[in-house]
Amino acid sequence: MLIKLVDEVDVLEAYRYLQDPAAGGIDLFVGTVRNHAQGKEVVKLVFEGYAPMALKEMQKIAEAAQEQWPITKLVMLHALGEKAVGEPVVIMGVASAHRDAAFTACRFLIDELKKTVPIWKKEYYQDNSVWVNAHP
């Protein structure tokens, strides 16, 4: 497993890690900063997290996924710090012998991360900013 909080999310690093001769399917979800939220134009986002707890929760989610699906390799990366519109901020990746397990497990990873991992974001708009839970 590759589980990290990072300054910059590296899509190529995640893909290279997931490559395995036993894997017939690799599913890679990349979450990026979009240009709008709450009906306003987003200028940038800032992510903060409590690293010890976040990594512990990410590990628990990964282990739960491995218990449910035949996963060959797994990646969970989340960026902290300031991110511009279009930048990747989160990557979930799963390699498995078959695509169905890869798709299903990858969806589980991102959904569970959003529910439990202590990471927050501050959305910056043209006229103000607001802290929100990154994963409501």
Rank of each mutant, 00 (worst) to 15 (best):
V30S: 11
V30P: 05
V30K: 11
V30D: 06
V30E: 10
V30W: 04
G31Q: 03
G31L: 03
G31M: 05
G31C: 10
G31F: 02
T32K: 09
T32H: 09
T32C: 11
T32N: 11
T32F: 07
T32G: 00
T32M: 05
T32A: 07
V33K: 02
V33W: 01
V33M: 00
R34W: 08
R34S: 09
R34V: 10
N35Q: 06
N35V: 04
N35T: 03
N35K: 04
H36D: 15
H36Y: 14
H36N: 15
H36G: 07
H36P: 05
A37H: 15
Q38C: 05
Q38K: 12
Q38G: 15
Q38L: 11
G39V: 02
G39H: 03
G39I: 04
G39Y: 02
G39N: 02
G39F: 03
K40L: 14
K40N: 13
K40T: 02
K40V: 01
K40Q: 15
K40W: 03
K40D: 14
K40M: 12
K40I: 02
K40F: 04
K40P: 04
E41L: 13
E41F: 03
E41A: 10
E41C: 07
V42A: 08
V42G: 06
V42Q: 05
V43G: 00
V43R: 12
V43E: 08
K44E: 15
K44W: 06
L45I: 10
L45V: 08
V46A: 07
V46N: 12
V46Y: 14
V46K: 11
V46I: 15
F47L: 13
F47A: 03
F47Q: 07
F47E: 02
F47D: 06
F47H: 10
F47Y: 15
F47P: 08
E48R: 11
E48I: 10
E48H: 08
E48W: 01
G49A: 11
G49Y: 00
G49E: 05
Y50P: 04
Y50S: 01
Y50D: 04
Y50M: 03
Y50Q: 02
A51Q: 15
A51E: 15
A51I: 13
A51G: 07
A51Y: 08
A51R: 15
P52C: 11
P52F: 09
P52K: 01
P52L: 02
P52W: 06
P52I: 06
M53W: 05
M53E: 09
M53L: 15
M53D: 03
M53Q: 07
A54R: 06
A54N: 04
L55V: 15
L55R: 06
L55I: 12
K56D: 14
K56R: 15
K56W: 10
K56F: 13
K56L: 12
K56A: 14
K56T: 14
E57S: 00
E57V: 13
E57P: 02
E57K: 12
E57D: 08
E57R: 12
M58A: 13
M58I: 10
M58N: 07
M58Y: 09
M58T: 06
M58W: 06
M58L: 14
M58R: 02
M58F: 09
Q59V: 03
Q59T: 14
Q59P: 00
